[in-house]
Design a protein around this nucleic acid. Structure first.
Length: 496
RNA sequence: GCCCCUGUAGCCAAGCCUGGUCACGGCAGCGGACUUUUAAUCCGAAGAUCGUGGGUUCGAAUCCCACCAGGGGCACCA
């Protein structure tokens, strides 16, 4: 991939610094698709974009211009097109600006006649096959700037993602939620059970962790009196990659004072149903060839109920550790000696039942042992008021009535510390400042974390997370350049 | 980390199982023809360390080994 990739000569000379447009491909189609074949409009417009196709036939040329809204044909007769030979010699992929009358060809294709045109930028690399595009996933992800031109679905997915974020913000703001930004650098990784990335701050000579969740900072803000807050947070987890996992991903977290898990479940189902209608036109969406009906209300069922439904075995924390071990063995679920009753119950659910759920469904009541930030269930001992939503067979969110009691929270952290000492490197660390915040009083609060990437996957009907992340995490590309040197940290000239 | 699959020009892609004349083609790019095309069409010339390194063989894109990169699955998580 060296010299051979370059074609043509660069002609940065004469490239303008700006170009005035007054229309777009989509706007032209909206306004003029109804005109008669072979007619002219008398309307002159300026548009700009990339040349994607070209059909030259001697003294008449057609081209397809693509901009961010779509495509429109250019009509260029030799008689009226300035520098006609130069125009027909443009490469596919070149950026041009065109000014001319809107008209429709005899064959009924809406077009802009090229009365004036300006080269805006040339491509020095050939564009992919105009029909097949790029099929190699590696190339698509590494060269997304090309992929987005030649893979229409890719562009649509990212437009949907943008609209989803915008709609989500608006929907929450209409309900008096305040969008906030909390630190990405955490001195103590917290708010979830996951391995963090770590980095080092030179001036402070301190290890910092990239956040695995914004949860503890958002709840600090509830202590601070922001009664409804949310953050659309990029979070980072130092774990494996898969079709459902990227090391950096986006999570929506929202916290509502005076609310409990029931309120939050309603919030989640209403938000997601709303997004489905706005983005797909219906509460029924098709995912991976199968329908899922997101109309509210969604089913709610407790975790032990669902296990019983699936396996026919009644399970409960009250059965005790030995009985649960036996059940796990019966069902062929491997468990660790270090696992407590709660962890075993969760393992049984995850191995036997969760894979068969399609949803949408709220799975409620998770064991305390595996839910260190959730509040004790108001009536079921050993369980918490925690729920997850399963939609289209995928875990989409995790929410609960928040644990507000500082003494109880310290006990939960201590339990986590014990697990960490026992070798669980995803266990939490005691966060003294968070405990101090709780000491000041956290009101009853309900909270939720929603995996935005997975929500986009659901509504865009794509099955790999890399198709909803513009630049997914990949190994560094082999450039062919000899390794060593060149990327050492510059010896930091101070310029401030 | 384990298992399976893939890697042929800028892009798409045949050949690989059943080793054997200058590695089949298409798009883009280059030269030429063409005044209503729609992946325009037609003619011409050109473009390839067959992922990398070893091995087997008279002979390797093809068979074997290792490595690199990517995809899918398992495991962990959202």
């Amino acid at each position: 991939m060296t010299g051979g990739a370059f074609v043509g000569g660069g002609d940065a000379d004469g490239q303008p610094y700006r170009y005035e447009t007054d229309s777009t491909a989509a706007a032209l189609h909206d306004a003029f698709d109804g005109i008669d074949d072979g007619s002219e409009t008398g309307t002159v417009v300026s548009i700009a974009g990339r040349l994607m196709l070209r059909r030259v036939q001697g003294k008449l040329a057609f081209a397809t211009l693509a901009d961010s809204t779509g495509r429109v044909q250019l009509f260029a007769p030799q008689k009226t097109t300035p520098q006609f030979d130069d125009f027909t010699g443009r490469s596919i992929g070149d950026w041009i600006g065109v000014r001319g009358e809107v008209m429709k060809t005899r064959r009924g294709e809406l077009s802009v006649r090229v009365d004036e045109w300006t080269s805006l930028a040339r491509t020095r690399r050939p564009f992919p096959d105009k029909w097949k595009g790029i099929t190699d996933p590696d190339t698509r992800y590494r060269q997304r700037y090309v992929d987005l031109w030649v893979t229409p679905d890719a562009r649509d997915t990212f437009v949907l993602r943008s609209r989803l974020l915008s709609l989500t913000r608006r929907w929450l703001e209409e309900r008096d939620f305040l969008e906030v930004e909390t630190p990405v650098f955490h001195p103590i990784p917290g708010g979830a059970l996951a391995r963090p990335f770590s980095t080092h701050h030179n001036a402070l000579d301190q290890e910092l962790f990239l956040r695995i969740a914004p949860e503890l900072y958002l709840k600090r803000l509830t202590v601070a009196g922001f009664e409804r807050v949310f953050e659309i947070a990029r979070v980072f987890r130092n774990e494996g990659l898969s079709t459902r996992h990227n090391p950096e991903f986006t999570m929506l977290e929202a916290y509502q004072a005076y609310a409990d898990w029931d309120d939050i479940m309603v919030l989640v189902e209403e938000l997601i149903a709303h997004l489905a209608v706005e983005l797909t036109g219906s509460t029924t969406v098709t995912y991976d060839g199968r329908d899922v009906d997101l109309a509210t209300p969604w089913r709610r069922a407790t975790l032990p109920e669902l296990v019983a439904e699936r396996t026919g075995v009644q399970v409960s924390l009250e059965d005790g550790l030995d009985r649960l071990r036996d059940v796990a063995a019966e069902l062929g679920v491997p468990v660790d000696d270090a696992h407590g009753a709660g962890k075993i119950l969760l393992e049984i659910y995850e191995k036997t039942t969760e894979p068969h759920l399609w949803g949408p469904i709220f799975v409620t009541e998770y064991p305390k042992e595996v839910s260190p930030l959730a509040r004790d269930h108001r009536s079921t001992p050993g369980m918490t008021e925690r729920f997850e939503a399963i939609i289209a067979g995928r875990e989409l969110c995790n929410g609960f009535t928040e644990l507000t009691d500082a003494v109880e929270q310290r006990a939960r952290f201590d339990e986590q510390a014990t697990q960490k000492a026992a070798g669980d490197d995803e266990a939490m660390v005691v966060d003294e400042d968070y405990l101090r915040a709780l000491d000041y009083g956290l009101p009853p609060t309900g909270g939720i974390g929603i995996g935005i990437d997975r929500l986009v996957m659901l509504l865009a009907d794509v099955t790999t997370i890399r198709d909803v992340i513009l630049f997914p995490t990949l190994r560094p590309e082999q450039t062919g350049a000899p390794s060593g040197g060149s990327v050492d940290n510059d010896q930091g000239e101070d310029v401030d």
